[in-house]
Amino acid sequence: MTPRLRALVTATAISAAATAGYLTARHSLRSELATVRHAATHDPLTGICNRAGLSAAAETLITTAHTAGRPVAVVLVDLVGFKKVNDTHGHDAGDHILTIVANRLTGIAGAAGLAARLGGDEFALITTGPANRRDDADTWLADWLTHIHTRLTTSVHHDGRYLAVGATLGAVLANPGHPAAVWLHRADLAMYTARAGRRTTAVFTDTTDTPADQRATDRPRDLARPTSPLAAAPTTWRAA
């Protein structure tokens, strides 16, 4: 091999190695970025979306449902008696319940909806109904909430025993034009209305302009909860 040819072969090999190294580094960077994005929008325990993930996807899901003529609801789920499970059976049992509830909500949401864990024992759900229920969306939602509650509160088997699952649900019919925080806030108010009335479910129906800090359902304990939308500074808004 002549010196010139040897130099050419060497240069080609170096170029190929550099290209391969670049492609490998690029692939690795893309993989790392995807991991970071996923971690930023998903709950590490249950694998479903967190509040950020829900906020990012909510408007598109709601708009898509309305374009298809389907009713769409945002539901807030607060587990009842969860602290007692942790205290009595340990955090492994509590984590098992959280994971099961997340899986159940994912199944309820289906491909057109979304389930999220907002933090602690608080979950949210975007769920849609069939197009032929758009005209009676209120009736659909009331019936659907009962179905959701029944599915969520089926006892969970863990470590040779059955653990009770309790939940209070608040919901609101959503439409395009508001961020997820607005719908979560209204669903939150409905949930605490249900609690105040010793019910398992309630739907937001308020049509008045009232600052959030003047509502009877905004109790001090609820305002202090870091996972609740009510923990944010109160604002005045108009119900749809």
Rank of each mutant, 00 (worst) to 15 (best):
A196E: 12
T235F: 03
T154H: 11
R215F: 03
M191K: 09
A137M: 13
G53S: 09
A25V: 10
L105F: 00
D87P: 02
Y22W: 15
V74L: 09
F204H: 07
D136Q: 14
D138Y: 14
A52R: 13
D121M: 04
H178S: 07
P44Y: 08
L61P: 00
A167P: 00
A52C: 06
N50H: 14
D135G: 11
R161D: 15
A181T: 12
Q214Y: 10
D213A: 06
T46F: 12
A65T: 03
N103S: 15
M191D: 04
T46S: 14
A18S: 12
R26I: 13
L23Y: 06
A111I: 07
A18H: 13
A18N: 07
A68S: 08
H27L: 07
G81P: 02
T46R: 02
Y192K: 08
D138E: 15
T217D: 09
V101A: 07
I148R: 00
E122Y: 04
T168D: 06
A112L: 14
L98V: 02
D222I: 12
T210H: 02
N175V: 06
T227D: 15
L173W: 01
H91D: 07
D95G: 05
D138S: 14
L54F: 08
I100R: 15
D87R: 09
A112N: 15
F82P: 00
S15T: 05
H178T: 05
D213F: 04
A39I: 03
L105S: 03
T60L: 15
I126Q: 00
H157P: 05
F123T: 08
I108L: 13
R37G: 04
S55R: 01
H147T: 14
L141F: 02
G47S: 10
A239K: 06
G120L: 10
T88A: 07
H38E: 14
G166R: 01
L79H: 04
T205M: 12
D218L: 15
T88R: 13
S31L: 11
T150D: 10
L54Y: 04
G110T: 10
V9H: 09
V9P: 08
R199H: 13
R4H: 06
A167N: 05
G47W: 09
A212S: 05
G94K: 00
A11M: 09
W237C: 07
G197T: 06
D143R: 12
D209I: 13
A224H: 09
I14W: 09
A137L: 02
H42G: 05
D209R: 09
R134K: 13
N86R: 12
R6A: 07
A57R: 15
A202F: 03
T106C: 12
H158C: 04
L184E: 01
K83Q: 09
A20T: 08
D95R: 01
